[in-house]
Every structure is written in C-alpha cells, then in structure tokens.
Simulated assay, not measured.
Amino acid sequence: MKLVLIVYYSRTEVTAKVATALARACGADLERIQDLRPRTGISGFLRSAWQALRGTAVDIAPAMRNPADYAFVILGTPVWAGRMSAPMRSYILQQRPHFRRIGLFCTMGGSGGRDVLSAMADLCNKLPVASMCLRQKDVLADDYRVALTSFADELTVLQSATPVAVAKPS
C-alpha cells in the first residue's frame, strides 16, 4: 500500500500550486481532478459559483489513481461562493467508499474555508487527520510555506505511525 495521494481541483492554478508543493514536501502521489466542461471566462466563473451554491455534482474525468491503494488521501479545493468546488464534490461522491484516512485543504480569496473543510469532512463521512486553509493572496505571494510545512509535518508523523502492508511472495 502506498502512503499518500493528494487529489485536488484547481480552476486558477492557486490550489494546484499548493497541491504540488505539498506533494513534494510529503513525497506523495498527485492527481488533478479534470472537469469535463471548461470554466474559463466570466460564464465559467458564474457557473462555478452557481453550482457550488446549489451543491451540484458535475461530470469529471475518471480518476487515474485508486484512493483505496493509499493509507491517506489529501483532498484540496478552492472555495467558491463559500462552498467547495463542484468538481471536488463529484470526486468525493464517487470515491468516498475508498478513503481510509483523509486530510483536507482549501484555498480561498475571501472567507469560508473552515466551513468548506467541515462540509468536505461530512461528505466524506470521515474526520480529517489534518486540515489547512490558505488565502489566495498568501499563496500567490509565496507566504504560505510555514502553514504548508506544518501540515506536511503532521502527515509525516502520521505516516511514520502507519504500518505499510507488505505483499506476500507468490
């Protein structure tokens, strides 16, 4: 069994920047959720906010990695209109039976991060082992490294206490 998979959705690359840095810090595998419908321009922005407010699930590409193969799955989403992104909602609904333990993070332009993390945990039916909210302006200014290091350190401690299954020889 592998240890950590980081799954994220990013429309503007802010959440992607955090997910990539976190994967490097933890030695984790990385999977980006692929939305099947473009979200560019003002219409994409408005549709994103509307779907988040309504709690809509959307069509996403099939996952490339199986979260059941990992001891920890870290989920990252932007905050849209005070809610998790619709693509992240879709991923959780599809994959939650396969989650063993979860960690959560979000990026936000304004506020609502703690509520989003709580909603994600509820949707996963699991309490997170670690969580983190980051402001977009801090990520863009590279002023988030202390929070990222703290989050990664929490995961490292948990990883060292997690037994790894060893395959039996055939």
Rank of each mutant, 00 (worst) to 15 (best):
T15F: 07
A16H: 10
T20Q: 14
T20L: 11
A21P: 13
A23V: 06
A23G: 08
A25N: 09
D29G: 05
L30I: 05
Q34G: 05
D35I: 09
L36I: 09
L36P: 00
R37Y: 14
P38L: 03
R39I: 06
T40M: 13
G41F: 11
S43P: 09
S43R: 15
S43K: 14
F45K: 07
R47D: 13
A49Y: 09
W50R: 15
Q51D: 13
A52S: 12
A52P: 11
A52V: 10
A57Q: 15
A57Y: 01
V58A: 04
V58N: 08
I60T: 12
A61I: 07
A61D: 12
A61N: 06
A63G: 11
R65V: 07
R65N: 10
N66F: 05
P67C: 01
A71Y: 07
F72D: 08
V73Y: 07
L75C: 03
T77G: 04
T77R: 06
P78D: 07
P78K: 06
M84D: 04
S85P: 05
A86L: 08
P87V: 06
P87W: 08
M88D: 06
R89F: 02
R89H: 05
Y91F: 12
I92Q: 03
L93T: 08
Q94G: 10
H98N: 12
F99H: 05
R101G: 00
G103P: 02
C106F: 00
C106R: 02
C106V: 12
G109E: 06
G110M: 06
G110S: 06
G110R: 10
G112T: 01
G113Q: 00
G113K: 02
G113M: 02
G113T: 02
D115V: 00
V116N: 04
A121K: 03
L123V: 01
C124D: 04
C124Y: 03
C124Q: 03
N125R: 14
K126G: 00
L127Q: 15
P128Q: 02
P128H: 02
A130H: 03
A130N: 03
A130Y: 03
S131I: 00
M132C: 13
L134Q: 01
L134S: 02
D138Q: 11
D142G: 01
A147F: 04
A147M: 11
A147S: 14
A147N: 12
T149E: 15
T149Y: 08
